[in-house]
Every structure is written in C-alpha cells, then in structure tokens.
Design a protein around this nucleic acid. Structure first.
Lengths: 133, 133
DNA sequence: CTTGACCCTGTAGTGACTACAGGGTGCATG
DNA sequence: CATGCACCCTGTAGTCACTACAGGGTCAAG
C-alpha cells in the first residue's frame, strides 16, 4: 500500500500522513527499493484511529496518549475515560461560549437598520465607549 | 498613557498590543524621549473596538475591514452587515458541528464500563474497523 | 523514450498570538 | 550618587495541526 492509497482510504492528505510520521503518531513504514513508503493493514488501523480521534476533536497529544493506552490491553481503561471526559468538558465549554456569542451577534445584527455607518448599530455595538472608533 | 496602562485598560497583553501595531490594526503612537510608546484616547477607543470584535469571534482581517468601514462614516453600513452576517453563519456552522461532536462523545463515554482496555468501548469507538488499534 | 501520475525531502506559511533573550528607561529608596 | 526594581524596547522563535510549495526522483503505459 503506497502513501497515496493509505491517504485515500482514510480521507487524509498525503502530506498529513507524512506529518503524523514525523511527529511520531504513525510508525515509519518499510520502504520500496525506490524509497517509497509501503504500508500494511496495521498502519491503516492506526491511521483510522488517529483520524477518528481528530474528527471527535481530540488533540494530537490526547490521541498520542490514547494510542499508548490502547497498546496496553491489560490496563484499566479509567485513564481513557478520564481523557474522554476532560475532552467532553472542553467541548461543552466551547459550546456554551459559541452559543452566547451567536446570540450576541444575532442581537447586534437585528438592530442594524442599514443606514449610514455613522449610525450603524453594529459598529456602535463594537465600540464600548459609546462612540464609533 | 504607556503601553502597560493601555493594555490593562483593555484587558490585553502588552505583547498583543505591540503585535496589533505590527500588523497594522493599531497606528504607531508617539514616543517618549526614552522611546516608550505613548497612547491617547483615540488609541484606547480603537483598541477597545478591536478587543470587542475579537471577543465576538471576528477574525483580525474582518476587524481590519470593519475598522476601515467605520472610518468612512458616510458610507452605507450594508458592508458591515454583510461581514457580521457572514460571521454569524460561520459561528452557527461551528455550533452545529460542536453539538454533533458533543453528543457523539457523550454516547461513547456513556458506554464505557471502565474494565480493561481490551474491551473499552471508547477505544473501540475510535477504531472504525472493529478492532482496537 | 517520453509523458504523466505518483513519490521523496525539506522548508516556509497559516492565525493570533505567546514567550523569551538581551538590553534600555524611570522612579524611589538608601 | 548608587542601586534595585518595575516597566519598556527590539527581534526572534514557538504554539497547533496541518498546508503548500520547490526541486527533484520513480514507475507504468503508450
């Protein structure tokens, strides 16, 4: 399996696959006589894991930890749970922030009568001192 | 007003103020005889505008555009409205993404009985081929 | 034997800062 | 007057997770 097929199979860019190797998430594969990377099913599994983790918003560092934990099959999965819960808490914080932000934006936009900038409510809302900047 | 007081007044780091100057959001202020930056109320207004915009999630480029529009007080604020609406659409897209993500995470976490990694549901959920990585 | 798709390494860029290193300034205290 | 300390200066490099080349090599088909 060349890097191109692996990338296609996992919906990843070729450069990204090489980057995962460089930062140590993906082990260096064998090389062909022409120095092409040659991947096997184990690489496909591991890269799929990484991509799924990224899609769920885990950071690369979190995935590195999860991979290390996953490799040690006897270990209790309490640490895995901890990472996942911490991440969920993070996501929920961002969600709350964005929700507040969206409603503030909607309010600001709703007030704009689209006259001239001189009395634009959006510009005013951005100028906390009351005067336009 | 020194950079330190300006920074404190706007809840900004000193380095960030200098960075805004470097990228052209904040005009270079006068200097003291010891080469310290000296700011006036106009700078305070402009920096407040920038910080409020950032807090609402506008990018620096969007703020640059908004500042240019705000400076031209005769212009119709249609362009301002366009930028704000585009940004709101963006925020709402992110909100939808995060909401989906959070519910996926909650589901994954809910299934984990916290036994050994070998049958951890979280690890399994990350391994789309059915086998742990 | 040439074309074109693929692959290689290495470096630089993205956004919005943050974190120094290595120095200078200004004011209060001894 | 000397010293200490908080503050300021410039410039560079680091963050995160990639992305985008530049400049070259490999491989299979026609």
């Amino acid at each position: 399996m060349t890097i191109g097929s692996l990338a296609e199979a996992t919906q990843t860019r070729v450069e990204t696959v090489r980057w995962y190797e460089k930062v140590g998430l993906l082990p260096p594969p064998a090389r062909s006589k022409g120095n092409y990377r040659l991947y096997g099913p184990e690489h496909l599994r591991r890269l799929s894991f990484i991509r799924r983790g990224r899609a769920l918003g885990f950071t690369v560092e979190q995935i590195r930890d999860l991979l290390a934990l996953a490799d040690d099959r006897e270990r209790s999965c309490g640490e895995v749970d901890t990472i996942a819960r911490a991440h969920l808490a993070d996501v929920e914080r961002k969600l709350a922030d964005l929700t507040r932000l969206a409603s503030e934006l909607r309010e600001v936009i709703g007030q704009c009568g689209c006259g001239s900038v001189a009395d634009c409510r959006i510009i005013e809302a951005l100028s906390p001192l009351g005067e336009p900047a």
